[in-house]
Amino acid sequence: MATLVPNIILNAAILGVIYGFLGLSLTIVYGGMRIANLAHGDIVVAGSFITYALTAKFGYSPIAALPVAFTYLSVLGYGLYRIAGKRLQNSREPELASFLFFYGVSLMISASLLFVFDADARAISFQFRPLSFQFLGLRVPHARLVAAGVALALVPVIFWALYQTIYGKALRGAIMNRDALRIVGIDIDRLSLFAFSISFGLAGMTGVLIALVFPAFSPFSGMDYTILGFVVIVLGGLGSPLGALAGGMVFALTEQLTTLYLGQSTGLIAGFLVLVAVIVVRPAGLMGQVEWRA
């Protein structure tokens, strides 16, 4: 028991980074464009299946799936925005319209995965050597460490892009006030196209990390990740990239520690109870107020 709690906390922290990554990719589109991408989880799962295909069929390392998933799914995002993004944003109820549109996209992606990979749950066959590392009495699976390392290496890059580049600042500006951005000369349509492609690409990379961390995934797992993504960004504060990371961490720690002390079935319940508590106490979310203060 002496090392169990630190082990759980360490593994929860790894999960938290990945949940945060999931939320980060979602908040770029939802926060900035008010497009509720209900297919986000299915894009994540598509990333997991790309990893599966590359490792099982071609024997590549899962790391090789990162650029492939990013590229393929960015192109999908680009195409979908070209087809519907502008119309959805200009509709009177962009959230409702996008909700319905992406529900359809979600069904199409999961049906396509079902068609190609069948209904069975899959896992990647690739094994890192050694299987796990031990230090200070803590034991971490190698694959989880790789997933966390990739996420921790990518997060600073994403934050640099969001907080230091003009495009990133403009994207955050879109989260804060779209009209103001338009009247200072920024082409919001082009910016949205860019954001949409990046969001889809990052969701695909999240899928690669999830394939490394979780034992299995199936074409039906998408909605679980969509819900998880929305929980994380609401918990952290809509439109706040930092909040997405904080939300992911809080949710994972709550879920894992509750599972340890109260049993497997209570983990998710506790996570959602924390969400409700945060909404009651801080409706803007954990970090929402920092960027949204009225």
Partner: peptide, 24 residues
């Protein structure tokens, strides 16, 4: 014409309730 193009032609405006980017 899209607002950003109108802006690029030299038309600027302010709003009754200021619309700044509060988190920047």
């Amino acid at each position: 014409m899209a607002p950003h193009r109108v802006s690029m032609m030299g038309v600027g405006r302010t709003f009754q309730v200021p619309r700044s980017f509060r988190g920047l």
